[in-house]
Design a protein around this nucleic acid. Structure first.
Lengths: 146, 146
DNA sequence: GCATACGATATGCAGGTGCTTATTATCTGC
DNA sequence: GCAGATAATAAGCACCTGCATATCGTATGC
């Protein structure tokens, strides 16, 4: 893929403004549902499977382990997740999403994806499919590099 | 595109880790060429066409206008760009990249893209083309939303 | 010509981030 | 049972960012 003047742009240079726009579009949705960005990311990561330790959770979402504690406190206070002590290792906490957390996450995600769909509508259907497929691969791949 | 468990992931959720990995990969390259991330972004924006005012430049790259001044100072001190006063409006400065700046930018970009190519190699050629095409469209599109 | 607007610049504040260190409770190897 | 490792947590530091404000030189409308 070449630019107008014939050179390829950096991946990062194309992704950065897109990322900024997506995050900006998410803010009002998150606010409407009383979730912080990190709160949403945590719920997103927990939905699917719970996690053994908070450190593992932090690493999975690319956050600092000392920073997510406040996020977990808030989510727990709102009843969106539970984190009882692991009876097998009382140092660790078994973090898992609650039914209410699942509902909240689903509602937010539906709204966010409605917004994203408006952007994706600009693409040819085949390109759209390829984009999502490629991003899924690259996202997984780049996780491993960290 | 559906996830393993049948649901689509948010665009932002896939892009964020990718973005982090790309930025992390750029750091050593930039350091080796004595450029800051913003410095590189500025050179990137200036290559192609110069720009009428610094405020316009700042907006084009999604930076704060009060923050890019130091970046411009550094780049100018290294001879990578010039910013004489506009004789037609002596308040404004005509920022343009120098030949040396162009060379520096090209060298850095070549290295960065070599790294990105290793990631892109994971994709089927058709998907790779579609990804770059789609990102170019979305990047331009999301610029307009800001 | 004078009031007003505008471009570049400096500065200060609030918030967010990664990183580091320390503390406490708990586990595990020996 | 004790020494050393590990999980969660708190707290501090350095940095970056967006945002707001102030200054100064310059342009422009009237």
């Amino acid at each position: 893929m070449r630019d107008v003047d014939g050179r390829r742009r950096d991946l990062a240079a194309m992704i950065a403004p897109l990322q900024r726009a997506l995050v900006a579009a998410e803010q009002p949705v998150l606010r409407a549902h009383s979730l912080s960005m990190w709160g949403y990311v945590v719920l997103d990561a927990l939905d699917g499977q719970p996690v053994r330790t908070q450190a593992a959770l932090a690493e999975a979402i690319g956050a600092d382990k000392s920073r997510i504690i406040g996020v977990l406190d808030d989510l727990e206070a709102e009843g969106l997740l539970e984190r009882p002590r692991d009876p097998a290792d009382r140092r660790a906490r078994l973090v898992s999403i609650t039914a209410q957390g699942r509902r909240r996450r689903a509602a937010v995600q539906a709204e966010i994806q409605r917004g994203e769909d408006r952007l994706l509508a600009r693409l040819a259907p085949a390109d759209r499919e390829a984009l999502l497929r490629a991003l899924a691969v690259l996202a997984d791949e780049s996780q491993k590099l960290d």
